[in-house]
Every structure is written in C-alpha cells, then in structure tokens.
Nucleic acid binder design. Structure first.
Lengths: 209, 209
DNA sequence: ACATGTGAAGCGCTTCACAGCG
DNA sequence: CGCTGTGAAGCGCTTCACATGT
C-alpha cells in the first residue's frame, strides 16, 4: 500500500517530473522502462518511487503521462504556489529572477532585495529591487515561505538570520559558505563549487583508482 | 584501516572543506564535535568520514585544521587544477564565469562560449567569448575535462553532445532539462527548480503531515 | 582525562523476482 | 501477453559505544 516517500526519492520525483515535461507532445502514456531510461535510473526504482504516490499505472500498459505529472506535483506540494524572495542582485540574482519557469513549477517571486543604492529601485524581471532593510516587512506581508540567498558569501550569514527572523521556513543558499539558522528552518546549499568538486572526485577516481 | 570513500560521503567532504575554510583565523585545531556542529551533522559521521582519508587526528586533542584541509583536497583530487569550459553567456553564465574561487577550489576556466553574435568577442571576467563552433577545438587544445552548461534548456542537449564528442569527462548542467550522454561521461544536474521543489516538499510535509 | 578511530548493530534504500491484473 | 506493484532479500550507510592512544 501507499507508503511515505523516502527522503532520497524526493529529488528523483522532481527528475521524473522534468522528464515528463520534456516528453514529445502527443505521448499520452509511458512505461516505467521508458521513463527510467530518460531519467537515467532503473525501472524497478521508478516503479517503487511511483508506488509511493499511489497506484496510478495500468498493468500491461504503463502510466498516463499527464495524470502522473499531476500526481507527482501533488505529492511534492506543487499544486499550490509558494511565495519566495530573492536576496542579492548580482548576475546570479538576476539569472534566478529572470527564470521563466516559476509559475509552471509552483513558485512565485514576491520580492527581490539588494543594498547597493545603484540597484535599489531598478527593475529585474517583473520586480523592482527593494532595500534589504525592507525584507522583514515584505516577507511578513507577502507571506514568503522561502528565501533565496544570492549574495556574496560575507553577507550570507546575516541575510540567513534576517530571513529566519522574518519567518521564512526554508532557505536556498547559493553563496559558497555554510549558514547556521534555527533548527525549524530548512536550508539547502546550491553551491557551484560543491558540484564541481564532486565531479572532480569522480574524474580523479577514474584516473588514479 | 583506510577504506574507500562512500559515494554519499563526497559532498560531505566538500562541506567540511568549506567549514574549515570559513574557520576563524588562528584556529589551529578543531574537534570532530566542533566541525560537526558547523557542518550540521553528528560527530560520529565526521569521524567516520575523516577516517576514509587516513588517521590524521590526535586522540584527546582533535584535528589540525590546515592539514585536514589539505588531506580532504587531496582525496577529492583538488591538488591539481581541472580545466573547464562554460557554455552560455546569459546572467547565469556570467555569474559562473565571474566566480572568484576557481583557483582556490581547484578549477580553471579555459573557455567560454555563446552563439549570440552580440556576445561573441566581448569579455566576461578574464575571458573573451568564443562562438560555440569553436568549442570542439578549444576543448581538445586546452584539455578541458569539465563542461558547464548554462544555456537555455532548448540548447542543452545539443551542447551536451558537443561537449561529450569533444572529449570532456564530466558535465555540470544548469539548464532545467535532462540531458543524455554516453555512459563514460558523468553528468550532474544543478537545477534551481529541483532545489526549490525539494524545499517545497519539506514545507508541504510540515504543514499537511 | 579526553577525543579519535572503529568493529558491530541497526536502519533505510535498492534491487530482485514474480504475483497480480488489465 | 505485458507491465505494474510489491514482499523479501541484499547492500551500504549511519549510529552506537567503547577500546585505543596521547
């Protein structure tokens, strides 16, 4: 029967979701085998992961692609819209703010902040940059649940504390440093150099045993 | 005795490395307990992870911070420099190219590419943007081992194939799509929306059971 | 006295292999 | 017949708890 989703299955569900959205138009159904090969995992894992959502496949046939998309989105909590704020308007902050897929993926930018007077008041995407001092009020008023840190590393800890104090429940930290926040706030690192270093390790293993 | 590093320990080693680099100046040694609390894991895990490198701690005392940094870097293969190329000069590509920590972290940008004629020839960081058509030759000549995809999703698959054909051994894909490459090429996704969706799931769980 | 290093137990995820069902 | 859904076995990682060493 329907069991709770294991921690490690969550990123895989987002992966399947991405694969389903990249599917050629007119592909109404898909087998676990096909989805597995697109996602780069084995089919038993796909079936097991999908079984955590419920029994939405048809034996002998496969899964209805659109229905499956909806069920994954439902399980991940993406059938509502999560308000988020972005702090830091460098190239990275701009790249994030201009990301086109927010609505489609279940998110909405409700504020973007920087302390550079040359940036405050300018437009980025559909938003006007506000001073960091305005962050606490904005987070509360617009009910932001997620804060994205796109500042230089020196400012990341302070921003994390402001976000936590203002009441966000989760932080995505792009700065190459480790921030400490109260236990009730979830933090994920999205660090470029971590990713590169993991790849370097694989290459290193390949060459040096 | 010294065992091979488990897959899942690799990102944690990079995390410890980051914590060690953020240490207050003049902190010559550190205990597993202290490092664990900075990294947000438990101390037994730190000790176990560090034991994969060898026995570099002193019982009753702790670890020499600088020596430990070096040993982690050695194990990850960061005592050499890995040449990489960046494809796509949008805000994201620029953010990546301007990342200041490449040399310190063990990487070197040897080329940056885009197909927009308005961008080719312009400078980004210390590099001049080259046309994507030049990618295969540049990768070969400058021995790039890693390719970073910072293009729109529509172009990601083609770029991935070019990188693989040109001989990179690893790809870091920032585009929100899944790319397929020959099995001998390692791929990591670094997708903004995946990270947000994982956080959304945690928030969703917290509120809805 | 104190913190590391580590066998061993415990736990959760992966994979297998096939029963179940359209 | 074909593909899903799933108990059960297998595997690898985490955590414990203490022997080890300074």
């Amino acid at each position: 029967m329907k069991q709770p989703v294991p921690r490690v299955a969550v990123p895989r569900l987002t992966l399947y979701l991405q694969c389903l959205e990249d599917l050629p138009a007119g592909m109404g159904r898909i087998s676990s085998e096909d989805l597995a090969s697109r996602a780069g995992v084995n089919s038993a894992k796909v079936r097991k992961d999908l079984s955590y959502l419920g029994s939405y496949g048809v034996r002998g046939v496969g899964y209805d692609a659109e229905h499956l998309r909806f069920q994954i989105r439902r399980e991940l909590g993406l059938t509502r819209e999560w308000p988020l704020v972005i702090v830091g308007v460098g190239n990275l902050g701009r790249a994030l703010a201009n990301y086109g897929g927010f609505h489609e993926k279940g998110f909405r930018v409700v504020g973007i902040f920087d302390d550079d007077p040359n940036k405050v008041g300018t437009r980025v995407g559909e938003h006007r940059v506000e001073p960091v001092a305005a962050l606490p009020d904005v987070v509360r008023e617009r009910q932001a649940r997620i804060g994205v840190i796109a500042t230089p590393p020196e400012e990341a800890q302070l921003v994390a504390e402001m976000l936590a104090a203002a009441g966000v429940a989760a932080i995505l930290n792009f700065a190459p440093t480790v921030v400490r926040v109260p236990a009730h706030v979830a933090v994920r690192r999205a660090d470029f150099s971590t990713e590169l270093q993991v790849l370097a390790f694989h290459l290193h293993q390949g060459t040096a045993g």
